[in-house]
Design a protein around this nucleic acid. Structure first.
Lengths: 185, 185
DNA sequence: CGCGCGATTGAGTAATTTCAAATCTAGTGG
DNA sequence: CCACTAGATTTGAAATTACTCAATCGCGCG
């Protein structure tokens, strides 16, 4: 199970067994049932999660009561309400499990400690953040340059297998169009 | 001049004079005239820039020949084509100076070296990346939840003084609406 | 079989785009 | 100081696109 985490980290930095044990000791295993919330709006955000198994959605509830999907998170993705986690604020997002989910969670304190005591891991997280930043830039560009149909295709590339796993309503919410519009492709 | 960089870094990590000199030695000063390109589509991206003075726009040219603005960069912002810089690819963005610009540039090799040799700076860049990531998430949320008018107001908050500095056409392009629509507020 | 959820389709409405024209503004030179 | 020009902004009107709301369809499951 935790071998997934190790393999994931070692795509960027090599680790000895001892080093990985040390890294690993900063994480706790956590299971969620379908429909359970990993993060709930208004609550403290005590953890960042590495997804071992399952699928989650990060959503924002706008004033008019509509749910907007900021991102999906599947195996080998990191997820939390980063705004809240990083700045120690209350969550503005809901992160809900679309399937049965199993994650490794790391607290803010443990993450900072791990980065402080182990340069390699600070490097790992910097590179990860960087890739994440680039990914979000791509998504913004897709909002600016592409119509819904093109964005839809990009989505299917970015999240392979997602099409099978969830109702199209959620895809529409991620793309920023109504389900009817998505249905008309 | 370079004191700006030091002050910027010290918002996150404290530095001794010797440490800052070491950091500083990895940067080169670079000046651009108005309308000059700091990064040009198709070229190698050899540097990431810290803006000391002036204003730049990062743009993407879509197939239909329209220019879309990914971001503006002003004093104390970091900017480059991160996709190209990080993965050592050709630029897909143009980064053009809207005003006379002065930057401190750091090469990919120097940035990696600096991060490797100085844990503090790896920490600094991780935190910066993190903040950047959060900022982009906010922008995506604004695309999903807000109409053009609301996004316009958020833009003016995010880039104070920008309203005075550039033509509204560019703001429209950043927001993803036509200049006419923006004009009608 | 029938219920319920999700997906599709249709029709009317609202918002945005496009193209064109008119207006405004700042800077230049007479 | 004024006229002229280029660029930027605004306005108008038609065409396109997406939205909303409602009704229908399809399918899996009890």
């Amino acid at each position: 199970m935790r071998a997934h985490l190790r393999q994931h980290i070692e795509q960027i930095v090599a680790l000895t067994d001892e080093e990985f044990d040390f890294v690993d000791s900063h994480f706790v295993l956590r299971d969620f049932k379908k429909h359970q919330f990993a993060v709930q709006e208004g609550n403290e955000v005590d953890m960042e999660f590495f997804v071992l198994e399952g699928l989650l959605k990060s959503t924002f509830l706008s004033q008019d009561g509509k749910e907007h999907i900021l991102q999906f998170s599947m195996e080998n993705w990191w997820v939390t309400d980063y705004q809240a986690f990083h700045f120690r604020q209350k969550a503005t997002l809901n992160i809900e499990c679309i399937e049965k989910v199993s994650v490794l969670g790391i607290s803010y304190e443990n993450k900072e400690k791990l980065c402080r005591e182990m340069h390699k891991m600070e490097h790992f997280f910097r590179i990860k953040n960087n890739s994440g930043y680039i990914g979000l830039q791509q998504r913004i560009l897709s909002f600016l340059t592409s119509d819904a149909k093109t964005r839809y295709n990009q989505l299917l590339v970015k999240y392979p297998g997602l099409y099978q796993r969830i109702p199209k309503t959620l895809l529409a919410s991620y793309l920023g169009v109504s389900r009817e519009t998505l249905s008309r492709l």
